[in-house]
């Protein structure tokens, strides 16, 4: 009699644990979908912002200052060099 009671108790415990597991999976899945939706929305907003500027406009910015890179290299080397003479 006791052994039957133990078996029944174990089966019920397993069933409860299984139901809890299934339930948690549903909640987790729901959260994941929600997060994905938010991320997609944010991504879409950023993509809209990116698309509002054309590559031609950006390339025009680089073209307006052809010596920019060499200017910056010289500037950084010159500023650092000040500390080398005492």
């Amino acid at each position: 009699m006791n052994s039957k009671l133990i078996i029944v108790t174990v089966v019920i415990a397993i069933a409860v644990a299984f139901m809890a597991f299934i339930s948690s999976q549903k909640v987790s899945s729901g959260t994941s979908t929600s997060e994905t939706a938010v991320t997609s929305e944010e991504s879409s907003i950023v993509d809209d912002q990116v698309n509002s500027i054309s590559e031609e406009q950006l390339k025009a910015v680089s073209a307006e200052d052809p010596t920019f890179l060499s200017d910056m290299q010289s500037s950084i080397a010159a500023d650092a060099s000040i500390f080398y003479y005492e």
Binding site: Q57, L58, K59, V61, Q73, S74, I76, A77, Y84
Partner: peptide
């Protein structure tokens, strides 16, 4: 200045709006 330019290792640069 010229000597120190030899010790530059460019990482990134960009042109933006």
């Amino acid at each position: 200045k010229t000597m120190l330019k030899d010790y530059l290792s460019p990482v990134l640069h960009g042109y933006g709006i």
